[in-house]
Design a protein around this nucleic acid. Structure first.
Lengths: 242, 242
DNA sequence: TTGACTAATAGTCGTTACGACTATAAAGAG
DNA sequence: CTCTTTATAGTCGTAACGACTATTAGTCAA
């Protein structure tokens, strides 16, 4: 078999198509992820990634944006970055029926507290490190999303999506350090970022105290470029995930 | 709406889930892609990417391997690289019904001639440059696949998937030049590749004439590593696709 | 057999990038 | 006032990289 010649409706097994969202943010210097507590079986009481069904008139991207708005109240926040991660289609990933799920990664700066949606007991930002174990195959989706974000930081200006519209280089550096879990040399980081054309541009005459302590830092905005040249590689790893 | 509470079968609109394959190879120094000519409406007589429905018991990956075997006769070829690209879910991408398609990219070295499958008029390797226009949204899928392969060459040892088990550095370089569409300096390419630990390993005592002309080249095998450190960046581009 | 021609391999040179540092400046806390 | 904290400036040696030139080892055509 390859393809029913006429596409007869229901001549083949129908699939449910859902979206799952791995939404990251930085809170108090730690990477957090948006999770919902399931209200019903299976996995009642377990934490899971937010998500839901793709409606007949929606693309997966549209469904992801709608679900994100419903779960967190962020509809069109300024620095909203949404990216398709991959699709998970193993039979048996949902014990009830055949569900194919398109996973997305989203990054938000300084988000509001989420309010629990329809069938979730509650929704909350939880530290990434303490997130496991999750329902279904969401542990794997979350790990894949983290890998992807870490890799994207190297080659794109994605880090600015974690920051407010105007930010200091120290804040930007903390994004890298938090996601990668490594410390970076501050002067070298500064040199690299400023030497990459289009990564950040200075806000003329503005300065902000980063919580009040230390010398006030200059403010920057995200630049015009999305791809970093040369890339900002993380220090000394031997093997990264492909 | 977010989610029907009970997952009642057919309580929501069912989707057809398919896979589409962008299979690349190198023939006569040019990038070729595997295409099928559609035998029926819509787009009868147009070229399209090979693909088909995901069966109820399959994952998308399994379906992709099955379709690839059916269309080309390559079942478990040694250097078969299969990677999920992304999922295309826009409503209306198939005029008949709602179809969500998981796209894959595959690379094969020196493939056999394909034989036309079930509902395809014929299957053939066609040069990438002359491939457009294709049926459905396959132009976009193919362009995305090409972008992805080009980017993967920079950071992974993917180029060896285009080569036979034993290859010369000249052949490896031609992979980069063909996919990227740029000429590379031969001594510098050689230095970079040999300086990257685990990329290639020499085959002791073996040498091959690359078509008979010139000095015989040493043979290499693919190394143990999948991720290149440091990356082999393509020369002087200002903006790449994100 | 001899002299193009071709492709592989070796090596050089100057510039830039990068990691590890040290030093200075500007704020708040006690 | 001084200690602490954070931002910013700059230095230095090494490694990487782009642009070359040179040599070697084959085929091919006269």
């Amino acid at each position: 078999m390859t393809m029913p010649t006429g596409y007869d409706k229901y001549a083949f097994e129908p699939f449910a198509v859902t979206v799952d969202l791995a939404v990251f943010t930085l809170r108090a210097g730690a990477l957090h992820v948006l999770l919902v507590e399931r209200g019903q079986e299976p996995y009642a009481g377990h934490w899971a990634l937010p998500g839901g069904f793709v409606l007949p008139t929606e693309s997966a991207e549209t469904a992801a944006r709608r679900e994100l708005a419903e779960e967190t109240g962020l509809s069109d926040v300024g620095g909203l970055h949404l990216e398709q991660l991959r699709t998970y289609s193993e039979p048996g990933r949902d014990p009830r029926m055949r569900v194919v799920s398109v996973a997305f990664t989203a990054l938000v700066p300084d988000p509001p507290e989420p309010h629990a949606g329809s069938d979730a007991a509650q929704a909350r930002w939880l530290p990434y490190d303490t997130a496991k174990p999750l329902a279904f195959d969401h542990d794997r989706i979350l790990a894949d999303a983290h890998d992807r974000v870490g890799a994207r930081l190297e080659y794109t200006c994605l880090a600015t999506a974690f920051c407010p519209p105007e930010f200091t280089l120290g804040e930007l550096q903390r994004v890298y350090e938090t996601v990668w879990g490594t410390a970076l040399d501050r002067p070298n980081f500064r040199r690299k970022v400023l030497a990459t054309p289009g990564f950040v541009e200075p806000v003329p005459g503005a300065a902000r105290l980063t919580g009040g302590r230390g010398k006030p830092a200059a403010l920057y905005r995200a630049g015009a470029v999305t791809t970093l040249h040369p890339p900002l590689l993380r220090p000394s790893r031997e093997g990264r995930p492909a």
